[in-house]
């Protein structure tokens, strides 16, 4: 891309819009749109509640003596995985808005503005991240009910982990949604990706119990480190797979990689009438 130093005399506001302001305004729009669609607001707040109500009462009676994760109650074991699942679905599905924006023509007007593609990716992804992370954090309300109590520092670290997972997954959603022109195709691809990603993250069953090749897959699944990081924070007395710092480092790398992927997808210029 050309340097943007050349000033054009005919124009009054020729300085570049930069990245921050466009990204901020796209993020803001994502939140306003969310807030104006009441059903989405209800969905985000109510789905963790419903999820936990069903899960809690179901597990509470069925697996009373369950010791799937060593000495831990299964419902406790499952808690971090449930939180990640909520974040996973919300993150990726918020990026359905990329397809909607394209269909509604809104995206075109952003693409002809003097805005770097990185700002478009950043704004949309941060918008989705905010919504997904907020939903994940709503789920934290239930932590005390299964006997998890944590201090302020731990809370901040939980927020960090949830944010990183949301960001990486939203960016993944963006990269998948960008070239697509229909939401049903998006659904199909997402189901192909999401369910295995989640199943193999240690959310349902621990790595230690898995057979060889499954364990290998679980080790390279970045989501494993999200679940692991949360488990580390919420159950500090239970020995973890890897230290918190390496989980967080992995999530940072995962986020950067996914953002890079989303940026790469959005930055391809085309000679085809694709946009």
């Amino acid at each position: 891309m050309a340097t943007q130093t050349a000033s054009l005399p005919t124009h009054t506001s020729s300085e570049s819009a930069g990245i921050v302001l466009p990204a901020f305004t796209l993020w803001w729009r994502e939140l306003v749109r969310f807030y104006r669609q009441r059903t989405r607001v209800i969905g985000v707040i109510a789905s963790p509640l419903v999820f936990w109500a069903v899960l809690g009462s179901g597990f509470g009676t069925s697996f009373r003596a369950g010791d799937a994760a060593g000495q831990q109650h299964y419902l406790d074991y499952f808690y971090p995985g449930a939180l990640i699942m909520i974040v996973l679905f919300t993150s990726i599905f918020t990026m359905m808005s990329v397809i909607e924006d394209r269909k509604e023509g809104f995206l075109l007007s952003v693409m002809v503005a003097p805005v770097p593609r990185s700002a478009i990716v950043l704004g949309k992804v941060l918008g989705g991240t905010t919504l997904a992370a907020a939903q994940g954090l709503i789920f934290l309300i239930f932590a005390p009910f299964i006997g998890i109590h944590f201090g302020f520092t731990t809370f901040l670290l939980v927020v960090l982990v949830v944010f990183l997972v949301s960001f990486a997954l939203t960016a993944l959603g963006f990269a998948i949604a960008w070239p697509m022109d229909s939401t049903s195709a998006f659904h199909a691809i997402i189901n192909l990706f999401l369910i295995p990603l989640w199943l193999l993250s240690g959310a349902l069953f621990p790595l230690s119990g898995a057979s060889g090749w499954i364990r290998g897959l679980m080790h390279i699944n970045p989501l494993t480190y999200g679940v692991e990081g949360l488990r580390n924070l919420l159950f500090p007395e239970t020995p973890g797979l890897s230290p918190l710092s390496s989980s967080i480092a992995t999530l940072v790398l995962f986020s950067l990689f996914m953002f890079g992927l989303a940026f790469f997808m959005a930055n391809r210029r085309t000679t085809k009438p694709a946009a």
Binding site: Q37, L108, S109
Partner: peptide, 28 residues
Amino acid sequence: VVFQAQSVDQKLTAYENLWHQGHLYGLR
């Protein structure tokens, strides 16, 4: 640019649409 398909955001007010648009062009 004014496209044939609508590009304004239905869920925003007229003012908000332009506020958003202005930010994309570095106005504030």
